[in-house]
């Protein structure tokens, strides 16, 4: 390995300038739990590493006056798990984020890193998508905000332009009658990569009828999917057996998985339906379903 520059900017502007000015390959460092592994495996060979953890905006998690949250891109899952507010409002979002790796990894792993690593199996992404989260991107031309699901364009590739990086995320206020959940299947209980992940956010009216729903699947296609047919299958229902069967079928139909060492097409597809049903059930309970 040739020598690598290491930079530690204190502001967003400095970070953008460093990214833009880099002659070769620049890499953002958040928790480093993907980047360091990739460096050691020679999968990436950056000329400069830019540690964003000294930029305050990336390291703060704020509940705003309207009940929404602004989440710094480099906040670790364990930090969110320690907070009463967000774990109560959006347990599914915190679940997907905080179950990453094991205790040691959880003290480091960030939403920004999980999203920008652009793995189809990133655990935090389906729940973020289901919750309707957006990302705040800073770059040479200022800032822009886009939905989470638009960031990853292919395995290992994001839509970020040269000089851009993710500063923070916006998480809406928890709606009335709202609930969310994230479930994944791994052969072990931790330290594994999702064979399938499923995030669900929904709202119920006072009669227990599903008013709105968003269902998202990870690890079953090149990027995280939004499964509109699955949401349609349950909106307007009380989650009776037919609605759940339709949801299961819609999840399965949406899958475009690959056969690989982590799971067969057949297995991944079946499990997408199972997790879809189970995540909806948990989200509905959290939304107050009796």
């Amino acid at each position: 390995m040739e020598s690598v520059e290491f930079e530690r900017p204190g502001t967003v502007e400095e970070a953008v300038a460093l990214l833009q000015g880099a002659s070769g390959n620049a890499k953002i460092l958040a928790g480093g739990t993907d980047l360091l592994v990739q460096l050691r495996a020679h999968m990436v060979e950056p000329d400069v590493i830019i540690d964003i953890k000294h930029i305050e905006e990336t390291r703060t998690l704020t509940k705003n006056s309207d009940g929404s949250y602004t989440i710094g891109a480099a906040v670790a899952g364990a930090e969110a798990g320690d907070r009463d507010d967000i774990t109560k409002d959006w347990p599914g979002v915190v679940e997907g984020w905080e179950l990453i790796g094991s205790t040691q990894i959880q003290g480091r792993a960030s939403l920004g890193g999980n999203l920008c690593n652009a793995s189809p199996a990133g655990d935090s992404v389906p729940a973020m998508v289901a919750a309707g989260m957006t990302v705040n991107i800073a770059g040479p031309n200022g800032r822009r905000t886009i939905p989470v699901e638009e960031v990853t364009v292919a395995p290992g590739r994001t839509c970020l332009e040269k000089g851009e990086f993710v500063v923070s995320f916006n998480l809406p206020a928890r709606p009335a009658g709202g609930g969310d959940a994230y479930l994944r299947l791994i052969p072990r209980t931790e330290m594994d990569i999702a064979v399938v992940g499923c995030g669900v956010a929904l709202t119920l009216d006072t009669d227990g009828v599903v008013k709105t729903a968003k269902v998202s699947l990870g690890a079953v296609a090149a990027t995280v999917l939004v499964v509109e047919d699955a949401a349609k299958a349950i909106i307007g229902t009380k989650l009776d057996a037919d609605a759940m069967a339709a949801l299961d079928a819609a999840c399965q139909a949406a899958c475009k998985p690959i056969d690989d060492k982590r799971g067969t097409i057949e297995y991944r597809t079946k499990i997408a339906g199972v997790l879809g049903r189970r995540a909806v059930t948990i989200a509905a309970e959290r939304a107050g379903k009796k």
């Binding site: 094991s102 052969p187 072990r188 209980t189 931790e190 330290m191 594994d192 990569i193 060492k261 982590r262």
Partner: peptide, 26 residues
């Protein structure tokens, strides 16, 4: 869970603890 996953070329697809799954404490 433990197994060697050899591909059609006879090379090992899981030479690491991520995909060669020994039990974890939990």
């Amino acid at each position: 869970n433990e197994e060697y996953i050899y591909n059609s070329k006879g090379t090992l697809d899981n030479p690491g603890f991520l995909d060669y799954r020994i039990p974890v404490a939990s």
